[in-house]
């Protein structure tokens, strides 16, 4: 009866267990390897990379590659470093995440608590939009952004990310609110509470877990986006595009240490978010994607 309290009822022998631990550790090394390589080589002088060993610890520790990646490295034609692009990304991500999450919350509320004829169709059409290959909208989007005078600007990128983000945020909030007892909403209605009041006073206070998921999902996707940034960024390119320009530049010596420092800079915000709130993210992502 000892097995009752255990995670799984399957029991394994000693040899099998050693094998299992070995495989798990090997894969942990596999996943950590690129991070180790990036980290260790971003604090080495360039000569130690080209002449030395990529896996070895630095003989001379230096933060110069980080300083260069941040403020002086050649991005495209300008020696500006990644700093201005990092700011572009922040200016783009914060409003885009906030708007798409709020709109998604309202949509989810309506699609579960104020149902109407054809609401499944409305939701289905919005849901499918999450899964289109964005190549299909690139050309008309370029035309429309040009007509609106938003091409190559941060507001243009915010618009694009909100438009193609609300499908996912609506999905998350809809699935979450579906489990909330509708009787409570009806009771509040009988007491005279209106549409926004019910949302504000009853649903929003319990939306914490799913709001975390929506914000992290949107933040990661928008921060990491490359296709829209490269197509519509113009002079307001986000971090990913700048990093790619830095790494692919064909002029001069390839400064691998600066590239690695730049790559870590581009990864830091999402890694930070993931480390702080990753647990909720995975839990919610499972609820959202496995259940549909």
């Amino acid at each position: 009866m000892a097995a009752v309290a255990q995670d799984t009822a399957v029991s394994t022998g000693r040899v099998t267990r050693v094998f299992i631990y070995l495989v798990l550790l090997l894969f942990a090394l596999f996943y950590l390897l690129p991070l180790y390589v990036m980290g260790i080589n971003s604090v080495k002088p360039l000569s130690e990379i080209t002449g030395g060993n990529m896996m070895a610890l630095p003989q001379v520790w230096t933060l110069a590659p980080w300083a260069s990646a941040w403020s002086t490295a050649q991005i495209g034609v300008e020696p500006t470093g990644l700093k201005p692009y990092f700011l572009n990304s922040i200016l783009m991500v914060v409003p885009a995440v906030a708007i798409s999450s709020i709109v998604g919350a309202l949509n989810g509320y309506i699609l579960t608590k104020w149902r109407f004829r054809g609401d499944t169709w409305v939701f289905g059409l919005m849901l499918f939009s999450c899964f289109i290959p964005f190549q299909i909208v690139l050309i008309p989007m370029a035309v429309v952004l040009g007509k609106l005078g938003l091409a190559g600007s941060v507001p243009g990128l915010i618009l694009v990310h909100v438009v193609y983000g609300i499908g996912f945020t609506t999905l998350y909030f809809r699935n979450y609110y579906a489990a909330f007892p509708t009787e409570l909403i009806r009771a509040a209605q009988i007491d005279g509470a209106g549409f926004f009041r019910i949302f504000w006073r009853i649903l929003l206070p319990v939306s914490g877990p799913i709001a975390v998921v929506s914000v992290i999902w949107q933040f990661t996707n928008i921060w990491n986006d490359f296709l829209f940034g490269a197509s519509f960024g113009g002079t307001s390119q986000p971090m990913t595009v700048a990093l790619n320009n830095l790494v692919q530049s064909s002029t001069g010596v390839k400064e691998y240490n600066v590239h690695f420092a730049g790559a870590i800079l581009a990864a830091l915000p999402t890694l930070f978010v993931y480390i702080v709130a990753g647990r909720y993210f995975v839990r919610g992502l499972m609820a959202g994607s496995v259940k549909g």
């Binding site: 894969f27 942990a28 996943y31 390897l33 690129p34 991070l35 390589v37 990036m38 080589n41 990529m54 990661t220 921060w223 990491n224 986006d225 490359f226 990913t240 990093l243 790619n244 790494v247 691998y256 590239h259 690695f260 730049g262 790559a263 870590i264 581009a266 990864a267 999402t270 890694l271 978010v273 993931y274 990753g278 995975v282």
Partner: peptide
Amino acid sequence: YLYPMALSFIVTGTAWKWF
């Protein structure tokens, strides 16, 4: 196992390109 999912494909590509 999970952290690579938080990275951009551009970062992943850069890391593996040089590795």
